[in-house]
Design a protein around this nucleic acid. Structure first.
Lengths: 236, 236
DNA sequence: CATAGAAACCTGTCCTACAGGTTTGGGGGA
DNA sequence: TCCCCCAAACCTGTAGGACAGGTTTCTATG
């Protein structure tokens, strides 16, 4: 093999990742479009299939492409899976703490709910109200309640009509799943639990009523209360 | 080889990624700590080194671990590189547009500057002022100006004392580098350019003066003006 | 013209080999 | 005894071959 003796700092895999990314940009590929086969790329870039495969795996890990056995690799849609793992890793290794995440969430969710109140479709309003209602029904079933809670915030993000907000909310979902029970346990009284669930319903109503100020104020309140609950639970 | 005939939907590589992640969590590894060698993992997990390597590459792509030739893989520090690529991919494939990113940036940077005004150390205040000053010096050197601009916002994020904000600001930097010149071209007059640079200095002063309200108001203003400039440039 | 089936193609995993880079442990010198 | 240097052991990066399935494409047949 006519090995090209060009040793970059990145290594062949890094170079190949770059080449594939460039290929996507230059050919202006859209989600779903197919990439060249491993064998072809390997030939064109003068690297072994091993290298191409590792480059593919790297891009797949970032959800830039999608792999499936037998099929060719395709350009992927945005997905929060990778970011979720990265955030979880940051928390597990003490590089990020839960309050810091709550500060970010409060900041963006306040904006999200403002946009949602302005831009939501009627269908979305209905769906958001329904999720808040389901939370009330599940007030004594923590597992179900958490899922509806997450779905509620996800629906709001979608209604904001800004995919970046959906992406970020999704990215925090992984770690939220792991810490949500802590927050719930720190609300031991029925009153505290009803308040939490009730606030969600109020937010849903404000969004349905297209009242951005009210929606934002309530969301801010919700986070005040959540952070207080978390601190009470001793999560420093 | 005693091949375990357990076919998950994820495939062996996916399983292996999970096993390594679990290993990090269970052993409570911190950034810098070393992971087992490929050969060892391959033996313990009953998969080929190929599979372990692809799993390593995937984790490295998400910056969860770090690879280097000859050395063992280590647990990595949080890094925005992967997120930056993901965002860029989203923009290039028309899944995200620039205004959407600006809306998110405005939202979080307004919060960042509020926190920075409260929490900045004196050193950070000095550094932020210095960066704003350097922007003024480079008002006729777009390339240098852009770099100082990016460094300015990065410094503010650091002063907010919340690594998640630093992570997010970093994630937008890649795409910002590609769109910044558009915004600059849409400020063709000296007055518009001086205004943009001057706003940065005003923000720096507000942060140095520990005036969060003023800092936030100015940052909001800055983004108003930036979005207007971008729209003028015809970036729909 | 539609369709079933074969051929061609493609990915997932395993294995072996070897060129460097890194860590470690031991021996020799101060 | 302690320190330093070097060789051996270890480790990763890349190449290449093999084969089991899964997928796409083409063709011949009904």
């Amino acid at each position: 093999m006519t090995r090209v003796e060009q040793v970059n700092s990145t290594g062949l895999v890094g170079d190949t990742i770059g080449a594939i990314s460039r290929h996507i940009r230059e050919k202006d590929l859209m989600p779903g479009d197919r990439l060249p086969s491993e064998a072809l790329l390997s030939k064109e870039l003068n690297v072994s299939r091993t290298v191409v495969r590792e480059a593919f795996r790297s891009l797949a890990a970032m959800r830039i492409i999608e792999l499936a056995t037998g099929k060719r690799a395709t350009v992927a849609q945005i997905d929060h899976g990778a970011m979720s793992l990265m955030i979880e890793h940051g928390v597990h290794t003490d590089q990020i703490n839960i309050q810091q995440i709550y500060d970010v969430r409060r900041t963006i969710e306040t904006r999200i709910v403002t946009l949602a109140a302005i831009r939501r479709t009627d269908d979305e309003a209905t769906q958001i109200l329904a999720l808040a209602a389901r939370m009330q029904d599940a007030v004594n079933d923590p597992a179900a309640l958490m899922e509806h809670d997450l779905a509620f915030h996800t629906a709001l993000a979608r209604a904001s009509r800004n995919p970046v907000y959906s992406l970020l909310i999704g990215s925090f979902q992984g770690i939220t799943r792991q810490t949500w029970p802590i927050g719930w346990k720190s609300r031991p009284t029925q009153a505290a639990r009803d308040l939490m669930v009730g606030t969600h319903l109020d937010i849903a109503r404000a969004v349905a009523a297209s009242d951005p100020q009210q929606a934002a104020a309530l969301m801010s309140l919700h986070f005040d209360e959540s952070v207080r609950a978390l601190l009470t639970a001793g999560l420093s």
